[in-house]
Amino acid sequence: MNSFIYQVHLNFKRLVWRNLKFFFFNLLLPLAFYLLFTKVMTVEMPKEALIVWKEDYLISMIIYSMLLSAVISVSNTFHDDNKQHFTLFVELSPVSKIRYYVSTLLVFITMSSLSTLGLSISGIIINQINFSSSAWLFLIILLPIIASPLMLIGIMISFSDSSNVINLLSNLIVFPMAIFSGLWFPLEILPKWIQKIGSYLLPYHLAELSKNICHNSLTLNKMNVLYIILWTSLLGILTWIINTFQNKKELHRL
Rank of each mutant, 00 (worst) to 15 (best):
F245Q: 05
I145S: 11
F180K: 07
P30S: 02
I125G: 06
R253S: 09
L201R: 05
E48A: 13
F33T: 01
L190N: 07
S122H: 03
N127H: 01
C214L: 01
N247Y: 05
S210H: 03
E44N: 11
S60T: 10
T116M: 00
L58I: 11
S233M: 11
R14C: 02
T42Q: 08
I155S: 12
M156H: 05
L50P: 01
I194A: 10
I141G: 12
I155D: 09
L234T: 13
T116V: 01
Y57I: 06
I145P: 11
D56H: 09
I237H: 05
D81E: 10
L187Q: 12
G123F: 04
Q195W: 09
V165R: 13
F159H: 07
V74G: 07
L106P: 00
V8C: 14
S112G: 06
N167G: 12
T116H: 03
M45D: 03
I141N: 13
K39A: 05
S158P: 00
L20W: 00
F78T: 02
Q7C: 04
L254D: 14
L226Q: 06
P46Y: 08
L220I: 07
A147H: 04
S133M: 15
P176V: 11
L36W: 00
I189M: 10
G118N: 02
F22M: 04
L114T: 02
D161A: 14
L183T: 12
R253D: 06
L234Y: 11
I141D: 13
H252N: 14
Q128M: 09
S132E: 14
S65P: 14
Y57V: 04
P186L: 11
I242G: 04
S233E: 06
L169I: 04
D81L: 06
V74H: 09
N224E: 05
C214V: 00
S210L: 09
V71T: 03
I124A: 03
L31S: 07
I153F: 12
L29M: 10
Y200L: 15
L187W: 08
W17S: 08
M66K: 04
I166V: 15
I51E: 15
M66N: 14
L137E: 09
P191D: 09
D81T: 00
I179N: 08
Q246A: 14
I194R: 08
T232H: 08
N247Q: 13
W240E: 05
K249R: 10
Y204N: 15
L230T: 05
L58A: 13
W231M: 03
L201W: 05
